[in-house]
């Protein structure tokens, strides 16, 4: 690297010029970083690569490890020779990726999670857009406290809602607490998407409302006024002008919601009474099907995990493109 030689020569010249002060190499180097812009940018670049490599290793290593496990035949996973430093597959068995679908209908579990996540995302984005418009663009008494009340929903652990929701979704009448008046009898929703999409929407709404409120509040009033004078209603202005201009925010909220629901297991494992794809059991439920009382097929679990992650990877890549193109098209300028 020419930069290094340059640094060295500079260090030498500095050492010569400051020979009477008798500084050590570290002090000289520090002095160089402070006074010399080239040396400083070299340091910054080095730090950038160090940190980037650290994050890449920590995030990508699990995927690599999944791949290694998926390719290693199951009997070799426990018996294998896992000598450090290089963890490599102990065999080559790509057949696992096919076997994943042969043993159980894994694609149905993926489909379930995908449908649940898509439905929840659509519901959340529509409702959060309306709420975000109201909180971000309208002035009304009680706006602050109301926003706080909505955010409070996300303070509770989801488990706190589980028992009453399970009661209700299994078709028991809903009774007002303390006074014992029966309010209504909900339909029996367990084993249907409704039992999962409803609580997910409620749980993930506050975050999306918060994100969209801040984004919608930034759109200049003039643009909404212009749209309304041109012929839209307030609602039309929201969906035709404010939402497209907030595309990065909408994409962020949508991706966060989608991923959260796609990976969700706690609620769905309980609302789907059996771990069957026909009962809307999710992806993680499917993964656990490879574990039986007597054996655990680690290689299939790893292969299925990789297969299950793919839709999210595709989605994030597409959404990221959307975010970047939204930014470069000058969507936020005005």
């Amino acid at each position: 690297m020419s930069g290094e030689t340059q640094t060295q020569t500079q260090t030498q010249t500095q050492a010569q010029s400051q020979s009477e002060t008798e500084q050590g190499p570290l002090a000289n180097w520090t002095q160089g970083v402070i006074s010399d812009p080239d040396q400083r940018s070299l340091l910054y670049r080095a730090l950038f690569y160090a940190i980037t490599i650290f994050f890449l290793v920590t995030t990508l290593f699990p995927f690599y490890w999944l791949l290694v496990l998926a390719l290693t035949p199951n009997n070799l996973i426990l018996a294998g020779d896992w000598d450090l430093p290089f963890l490599r597959p102990q065999g080559f068995n790509p057949q696992a990726f096919v076997e994943v679908f042969e043993q159980i209908p894994f694609h149905l579990y993926v489909f379930n999670s995908f449908v649940l996540a898509t439905m929840t995302t659509i519901i959340v984005i529509i409702i959060a857009s309306l709420a975000g418009y109201v909180f971000g663009r309208l002035e009304f008494p009680g706006r602050g406290p109301l926003m706080l009340a909505i955010l409070m929903v996300s303070y509770f652990p989801p488990a706190a809602f589980l028992i009453p929701l399970f009661e209700a979704f299994t078709g028991n009448p809903v009774v007002a607490p303390f006074i014992g008046v029966e309010l209504f009898t909900p339909p029996r929703l367990v084993n249907t998407p409704g039992a999962m999409v409803l609580p997910f929407s409620a749980l993930f709404l506050p975050l999306s409302i918060f994100i969209l409120t801040t984004f919608y509040a930034q759109i200049p009033d003039g643009l909404e006024d212009a749209a309304r004078v041109e012929g839209t209603t307030r609602l039309g202005a929201l969906f035709r002008v404010i939402m497209p201009l907030s595309a990065p925010g909408v994409a962020t909220a949508a991706v966060l919601t989608f991923i959260a629901v796609y990976n969700e297991y706690f609620f769905s494992s309980i609302m789907a009474l059996g771990n069957e794809p026909q009962q809307w059991s999710p992806l993680v439920g499917g993964l656990l099907q490879y574990q039986s009382l007597y054996s655990t097929e680690f290689n299939l679990m790893a292969a299925a995990s990789i297969v299950g992650v793919l839709p999210v990877v595709i989605l994030v890549v597409v959404a990221q493109e959307r975010i970047v193109s939204g930014l470069t098209a000058g969507a936020l300028k005005e």
């Binding site: 200049p220 212009a226 309304r228 004078v229 041109e230 209603t233 002008v241 098209a329 969507a331 005005e334």
Partner: peptide, 20 residues
Amino acid sequence: LPPKDRGVAMVFQNIALFPH
């Protein structure tokens, strides 16, 4: 009446073209 039903068109100070 809402703005869209008034038969008016408006030019704004900040121009307010739809940037997208």
